[in-house]
Design a protein around this nucleic acid. Sequence first.
DNA 1: GAACGTTTTGTGTAAATCCACAAATAGAAT
DNA 2: ATTCTATTTGTGGATTTACACAAAACGTTC
Lengths: 407, 407
Amino acid sequence: MKNDPFRASFESLEEFADMVSEVLHCPITIEDANHRLLAYSTHDDRTDPARIATIIGRRVPEKVINSLWKEGVIPSLLNSRDPIRVKTVDEIGLGNRVAVSIWKNDEVLGFIWALEIEKTLGEEEMDCLKRAADATKNKLIQLQNRKNKKEEQFQEFFWQLLTSHLSSNEEIINKFHALQISPPTLFGIAVFQFTKELGRDDEKHIAYLLKTIQLPKILLHTIDHQQLILFISLDGTQQPVNKLNAFCELFVAKMKERFGIESIVQGYSSVYCDLVKVEKAYKEAGTVLSIKRKFPIEAKDIHGYQSLGIYKYIDVLIEKAGTDQNENYSLKRLQEYDKKNNTDLVETLEVFLNKDSNVHEAACALNVHTNTLNYRLKRISEIGEINLKDPNQKITLYLDLKLEKFK
Amino acid sequence: MKNDPFRASFESLEEFADMVSEVLHCPITIEDANHRLLAYSTHDDRTDPARIATIIGRRVPEKVINSLWKEGVIPSLLNSRDPIRVKTVDEIGLGNRVAVSIWKNDEVLGFIWALEIEKTLGEEEMDCLKRAADATKNKLIQLQNRKNKKEEQFQEFFWQLLTSHLSSNEEIINKFHALQISPPTLFGIAVFQFTKELGRDDEKHIAYLLKTIQLPKILLHTIDHQQLILFISLDGTQQPVNKLNAFCELFVAKMKERFGIESIVQGYSSVYCDLVKVEKAYKEAGTVLSIKRKFPIEAKDIHGYQSLGIYKYIDVLIEKAGTDQNENYSLKRLQEYDKKNNTDLVETLEVFLNKDSNVHEAACALNVHTNTLNYRLKRISEIGEINLKDPNQKITLYLDLKLEKFK
DNA sequence: GAACGTTTTGTGTAAATCCACAAATAGAAT
DNA sequence: ATTCTATTTGTGGATTTACACAAAACGTTC
């Protein structure tokens, strides 16, 4: 075995990257397990767009990560200690390169990338890269320790926010600065409910995903039994609520796609500026989850506290309806008619209302001709003595229909 | 003065009617103050459709009464003790005739009608008719006294119903029969709130109107301070609620038109079969009135408990919204935008929702082009992050808009 | 099986909606 | 005054609605 150039100690990861670059005659990039840039070689100025974007953004761009997952590159790196060759993917500006993962026992700490510009690495050089990966291990462990300590501080701070332990806005902002996070001017809290207690592996998966999804920015996150709680900055977003919603759906989709974790129930709060309202926001997300538990079908596609809509009021409505015990006359009449004549007027009405009074859509949903639906609606308004152009009446019917389901 | 044939005493009003008929050589009809048939001559079989209908129905048909009011005939009869000539009104089958009112002091007790078929009454015969009217006075006073006693029994029974003094359905039905009213299988309670304490004159006006409006049937009525309370039978009506509503509006319109009594606030209950529920119905009508007091503009056109719609729930909603103190994010954003840019997005949204999402109507109401409204709606959904096709979101906005008005 | 009422589907038309695009207007910032 | 942006209004065209009327299908009753 020839002399190993990486045995020598080195001051910084940058220095080490340059050294590897010189030995292999190609640009080198070192990332942590979450694809954040740790170091890159500078002596060689040949590069490709993906690498430039990585260096500029201090992280691998999300679309590049997505592509590498789809191509199976990252799964392979997570499974094998040997270098892997990645072929050019033009759409994302990724040139030919070789990658190797950095291991500590059974855990991947990071990756080394070597760009194959103008030359291709031979077997010996691949082996050399593998040894380089081994040599960075200790350095990465140190980094991780430092990060873990910081992570603990984050955790503590987040729980202080969630329990309103910090009462003044100023105090909170100072703490943010102390942790070197710029405090958001607009934020939301999201909670994801898993089907089982979250273990160390899940935590890593989650952390990985949160780090690689680049927008919106997850400033803080923590895990509480079966729940993942996120503190999300929405600064600079045009439509914060929509953004938040899109993120939550994306997160759930990726968890399933990448790690096969299913049945995650999601809920997120209103959007706030006032940092004192973190606890309120946290409770709102909890409310969403609890309503989803009660009304799994109806609230299936509702994730945000904003969009809870009438369900926000449903408990008091149920209570009120219970004490007054007044049935809706129109519904009663329709139900009687349905029973007597074997028709589906009540169901028709409900679908029609669910579809926002759109005859076309409702007819499709019911698998009937639009004229049929129109005929039924005419009958409904006759029998139930309903004016289907009066929003107040329609809303009442909508509410009473929903209420009836949960009696 | 020549000998007065009406001085002689007579057994019954029928006998008297025949006598007058023979003297004047024309058919005679005698009515009470509420246009109920008291007697009619039978010796002369010439007649007209209006008279036939009156005799068949034991009362003057409603449309004939309406016509006589419009023509000013009834007002004149109520003002003057002299006979009045009425010209043919073909549409309602009314031939030429002469009428005179029957007086006791300053009060009209009834009317005598003489049909002018093939002949016209001369001055002397007109005078004769006037004397005939005077001669019926005592007979009518007796009738009235008997009726007053019955009226008192009705009053007592009605209040027993209103206060749930009678607890079993059977007991109530027996009482109905005892008072010679056939118990309704479907009924409602209506309450009319006047602006002042109701005096004897008002009572008479009301009684008159109730007796002359023929459908639906007012089985019982009573007056309580500023309120008129009605027990209305809805038997045999296809659309009881709509019928009830139409009646209430008609009553208020007629009170204004005929007696100049304005600002009546109306409220009516749900429709019930169970006679034990009269008190509940009475309370419902009261609830409508109290909500109209709180929301005079919004609930202006709502009279029925059924159609209260969301206002039925508004108190608990206000309470809930108060304790939670969560503003609607979308509305907040829109309000901010309105303030900043001097626009009317919130108002636009409200009108749009009030008009049941009908672009055309809403645009008219706002006095803008439909395209303008469409543009605004697009902006509204962008700025408020609202999906205007989601009924749940729209309902929430509607509710929150209404709630905001009463904070 | 004939007669009946109710429901469903098809046809046609005037009106309304949705959309994109262009022009005119108004207000604010520079 | 000019530029810029947001708003309002106009035009046109494909789609959808509302409504009326006719024909077909279905279930019930006799």
